[in-house]
């Protein structure tokens, strides 16, 4: 599997990453080498094999679908752990650029 510089740019966009122009070739060669190595998986006949998606024999019992209470102190700690806040509210950049009052 040989990726291209365009592939790397496309994947980076999907993954919300920016790959600097000088680093693109490195990602191309390293990712291509790993994907080529992984192609040996194709040599196994798995036509009658089910995929393993999890290893849990029995899921933990679900709790009642009820809201757990949060103390004011916990709330304050959670807000403090957020990158930016104002007067106890969480601050994020504007999402809808063209919104008009």
């Amino acid at each position: 599997m040989k990726l291209t510089v365009q592939d790397v740019d496309h994947i980076a966009g999907l993954a919300r990453l920016t790959i600097a122009p000088g680093e693109r070739e490195q990602y191309v060669s390293e990712m291509s080498a790993i994907l080529s190595y992984a192609q040996q998986l194709q040599t196994l006949d798995t036509s009658v094999v089910e995929p393993t998606t999890h290893l849990t024999e029995k899921l933990a019992e679900l709790r009642e679908d009820a809201v757990n209470s949060v103390t004011n102190e916990e709330r304050a700690q959670l807000v403090a752990a957020f990158p930016k806040s104002h007067a106890g509210l969480l601050v994020v950049p504007q999402v809808f650029q063209d919104y008009k009052e």
Partner: peptide, 15 residues
């Protein structure tokens, strides 16, 4: 299908 699904099937064989 070629990568993730096939890898999970191979995981079954290893298990």
């Amino acid at each position: 299908d070629d990568y993730y699904l096939q890898a999970q099937k191979v995981r079954t064989l290893i298990k």
